[in-house]
Structure formats: structure tokens, C-alpha cells
Design a protein around this nucleic acid. Structure first.
Length: 466
RNA sequence: GCACUUGUAGCUUAGAGGUAGAGCAGCUGGCUGUUAACCAGUUGGUCGUAGGUUCAAAUCCUACCAGGUGCGCCA
């Protein structure tokens, strides 16, 4: 007897006629009173469940097997045989069915085998991974994450574990979550009547990171090719289908590189990880294509086969102005692009991911490299149809005097950035990087529209359940 | 943060001033191999909560609670 995963069993790996054991959860049971039941079992190893054929010679057939309902956990032992029925290659002719866990009250089990709304699944986030949809999302998400690491590794990048707790705000903007061990009911105060953070755990104010970028730049200017991949946190009161308070970002940083090499890397990485999904998650993608978004596979193939469109911000503005389209927000050089503008460019004008470069300096962060025109910075956003901004990046300002001027111009506290400035004082080099919103990427790949359904336990304003 | 919108059985929903109906799930029975099986029967709801209007409220009004969509901010 050998314990096998369902993906291996369905592939016939143990060999025809071999005795195997699988463990998992019941998805459906169909039976014929003549003495035969078909129990479909999933274990998360692949999209399809395996069918166990159980006849009434099995000793607990009457007492247990015909009482199995969706969600029960079982261990099934039997012979792996080619299926007599359609729909699967191999099935298990069961000789033994051990029920590990019953479903308490099948009438109120929240995940019966029927169509559910994503809102209902969200309310039962602890049970939703048992569904086809969330199971498939989970495998695709894993595939994408593994592919990111593989791509980076194969291309000589070092994965840097940048800190989660930080004292600095990466962009001088954006709300941060405070990290504190002070007694909230009895806060220590200074003579000035302000909260005395010198009494706090770190002896100063500290927060959850909004980006690992500044830290990873330090490692970039030593290791040359680096990236971070971890959770980030934004305390913004954003209520949309593409924002989370806790989300995951991939942030590569390359030394001796400019904006165009940065865009090249972003494109190569997306191609690589999308190809991995098509190669490794065919059944899951077929499901998304059938039930969620009929274009999802075409969309990935399209990205793999075609270059991203590249346009400067200035060109985008002129396209928008000439579009004759009625926008809610007026288009004029200098504005930040609105969702409606980005959508028009990515979805209607180009029809595939588009890299927009060289934005006006006034709408971008202090660390982005000033272009020779003195008006724009070497920033880039990758706009994906249906999602909007999926990547934001820039060539970094490596010239200390220009960086200092920008920090002052934007009224930022220079002392906070002393070590970031040091990187420009000691062996500075041109470098560039970007941040890929990993959850948005999963949403783009699967076609699942709400970002809350592509992360296991979503954190959004007014909701930290589970 | 702003605007809009929705709460009816475990789930999905019909009902739009006159006292709640269905499909699925569950349960019972039937069917020699089914594919989110099929056939027959059946349990289950003080209509999100609290007020108010009315002879009468699931239905109209107010507040609260819990969801959703869009916008802003961004990834």
C-alpha cells in the first residue's frame, strides 16, 4: 500500500492495479441503492477530485459510506484502476473507507457542493479553500509566487528579507500602521503634552512597512541584483476591489540599470510567471476560463507573445486629448492619470499591458530620477487591462545634490533619510526597480475581479476577521 | 473619506401595503457505473436589528448593524 496524492493517483503514477491510499475531503457522493457509491474526493493537489468506487462489500458501507456528505474527511484505500466511466482516467476501487471527520450538521454546512457567491465565500474564509474556485486561486497564486522566485534565482537575483517593522515612510505619503507596545489607556506624555515615544519599544515611533524599496536599495548597491517579496501594509481607507490593507509585493532592484532596462525586467518577469501558470496550472486555468473569465487564457498568451506597449506620459496625454472621449476628469499635461484614463489607454487604445514612462515630477516620489528636461522623472507604471496599475517603478535618483534638492523641495525631513543619502555618498551608481502588486497580478491572471478573493485572509478597512 | 446600493429558509432568490413561494442543499424512499447524476416525497422562514406611519408592514419612513459597487489614494 502506498499513500499518494490525488494528482499522482489521477495521473496513474503508482501504476495500474496498484494498491493505494488517498486522503482528503468528500466533494460529492452519488449512489445506487443496488449497492454502489461514487465518492469524489479532493485533497488540494489538483483541480480534479478522484472518484472512489465503493461497493457494499466494504464493511462500513451501510453504516457510514452512504451517509457521507460534502466536507467529510476520509482515508480511502483500494486498487487504482482505469475508470469504466467517463470524466476521469483513473479511479479507486475501494476496499476500505475510513471516516476521519464527519460534518457536524450537513444541513447548515456553509460549503455544500453548489454555486456560491464570492461574498458568501468571504464570510467563511476558513472553509472557502475547499471550494473549486478558491482551491484553484490558491494553486495559481502559489505557482506565480514560486515562478517569481525561480525567475529571480535563474537571473542571479538575491532575495532580500527586508524588515516588516520600520521607522521611515518610503514615500513621505501614505498612511502607516503604528507598531507600539505602549499602554493605550495610559500613554506616557512629554512636557509638551505629546506622546513620549522614547518610552516605546524601539525608543522611537515605528510602523509596519509600506514598501521594502528603500531597504532593498541598500542591498542593491552591494549585491547588484536583488528583490524583496513579502507583505506590505497601507492604512489608507481605500474601499475598492483592488486594494488591501495587507498585500504582497515583489520589488526587484537592479544596479547599473536605467528605466528601459527596468521595464525590460518587468516584462520578462511577467512573461515568465504567466508561462509558468499556463504550463503548470492548466486545469485551474481551464476552470477560470469556463466559469470566471472566458478571456483569461488568451490574455496570458497575448502577454507572452507580444511586447508591452511603451508610451511616455506626454504621449498618453496627447492620445487622451485626441480621443474625443468624454472623461469625468479633464485631461491636461501635469495631472495624475485617473482610473478612467488608465483604463482607456490599457483597455481600448492599446488592448494589452502598457508601460507608461516619464511622469511629471510633481506627481511622483522624491527618489525618482530627474530627467534632463527638468520637468519629468524616470518613473514607469505598467497598466493592465481590467486591473489598472499593476506595477509602479522608477530609475532612482543616484546624484546626491539632485536628491537633496528634491527632498527639500518636497518638504521631507532630510534627517530621516541619512542612510539613504549615504548610499549616494559612497559609491553611488545608477539603479532602478519596481514594485509588482502580487495580489493584483493573481487577480489579472485568474480573472477573479475582487482582490479579496485572491488572498487567503483579506484585510480591509473594518475587517480583520479570521 | 465620498457617492450609490443590498439584507426574505443553510445557500440562491420571487414577492413592491392585505399576513411568505420556489430552486439547490439536507432528510426519506426509488434506481447495477454515476460525473456539481436522475425520479418521487419531505423538514425548514416571527422577511438584518430597533423604532415609527397605518385598521393592516417583508413591502413606506428614520436610525443602527452587516455586505456590495463606483470614485479618490495607490500596488
Amino acid at each position: 500500500m502506498s499513500l499518494v496524492s490525488i494528482v499522482d493517483a489521477l495521473a496513474g503514477k503508482p501504476g495500474e492495479g496498484e494498491k493505494v491510499t488517498v486522503q482528503g475531503w468528500v466533494r460529492t457522493r452519488r449512489d445506487s441503492k443496488a449497492g454502489l457509491s461514487f465518492v469524489n474526493i479532493h485533497d488540494g493537489s489538483c483541480f480534479n477530485p478522484i472518484q472512489a468506487v465503493v461497493d457494499n462489500n466494504v464493511n462500513n458501507y451501510e453504516s457510514e459510506v452512504i451517509k457521507l456528505t460534502t466536507g467529510c474527511s476520509v482515508r480511502v484505500t483500494g486498487t487504482l484502476v482505469p475508470s469504466q466511466g467517463k470524466g476521469q482516467t483513473f479511479e479507486i476501487q475501494a476496499t476500505e473507507v475510513e471516516v476521519l471527520g464527519w460534518v457536524d450538521d450537513p444541513d447548515t454546512y456553509p460549503m455544500p457542493m453548489k454555486p456560491h457567491t464570492v461574498e458568501h465565500l468571504r464570510k467563511h474564509a476558513h472553509l472557502r479553500p475547499r471550494t473549486n474556485l478558491i482551491g484553484a486561486v490558491t494553486r495559481v497564486r502559489n505557482c506565480l509566487a514560486q515562478a517569481v522566485h525561480r525567475f529571480m534565482h535563474e537571473n542571479g537575483y538575491n532575495w532580500i528579507h527586508t524588515p516588516i517593522i520600520t521607522a521611515s515612510d518610503a514615500e513621505g505619503a501614505g498612511e502607516m500602521f503604528r507598531v507600539s507596545t505602549l499602554d493605550q489607556a495610559n500613554l506616557p506624555m512629554t512636557d509638551k503634552g505629546e506622546i513620549d515615544y522614547s518610552k516605546d519599544f524601539f525608543g522611537q515611533e515605528s510602523f509596519l512597512t509600506v514598501s521594502g524599496q528603500l531597504n532593498v536599495e541598500a542591498y542593491c548597491l552591494a549585491m547588484s541584483k536583488v528583490y524583496t517579496f513579502g507583505p506590505t501594509f497601507r492604512a489608507e481607507n481605500s474601499n475598492t476591489s483592488r486594494h488591501l490593507a495587507e498585500f504582497w509585493m515583489v520589488e526587484p532592484e537592479i544596479a547599473f540599470a536605467d528605466l528601459s532596462q527596468n521595464a525590460d525586467l518587468a516584462e520578462a518577469m511577467m512573461r515568465y510567471i504567466f508561462k509558468a501558470v499556463l504550463d503548470e496550472c492548466g486545469d485551474d486555468m481551464a476552470f477560470f476560463q469556463q466559469r470566471v473569465d472566458k478571456d483569461c487564457i488568451n490574455r496570458l498568451e497575448n502577454v507572452i507573445d507580444n511586447n508591452f506597449e511603451r508610451m511616455s506620459y506626454t504621449d498618453v496625454i496627447s492620445v487622451l486629448e485626441k480621443s474625443n472621449k468624454k472623461f469625468e476628469y479633464d485631461v491636461k499635461w501635469g495631472i495624475d492619470l485617473q482610473s478612467e484614463h488608465e483604463r482607456y489607454i490599457a483597455e481600448e487604445y492599446v488592448g494589452r499591458p502598457t508601460v507608461v514612462t516619464d511622469y511629471p515630477k510633481d506627481i511622483k516620489a522624491f527618489y525618482m530620477r530627474m530627467n534632463d528636461d527638468g520637468k519629468t522623472v524616470a518613473a514607469m507604471d505598467v497598466l493592465a487591462p481590467g486591473i489598472g496599475e499593476i506595477i509602479g517603478g522608477a530609475q532612482r535618483e543616484e546624484r546626491l545634490d539632485v536628491l537633496d534638492a528634491r527632498i527639500e523641495e518636497m518638504g521631507l525631513p532630510a534627517e530621516h533619510y541619512w542612510w539613504y543619502r549615504d548610499l549616494r555618498r559612497y559609491g553611488t551608481v545608477p539603479h532602478a526597480g519596481f514594485g509588482l502588486g502580487f495580489d493584483r497580478c493573481v487577480s489579472y491572471v485568474t480573472g477573479v475581479q475582487n482582490i479579496r478573493d485572491v488572498i487567503p485572509f483579506p484585510r480591509v478597512p473594518n475587517n480583520v476577521k479570521f
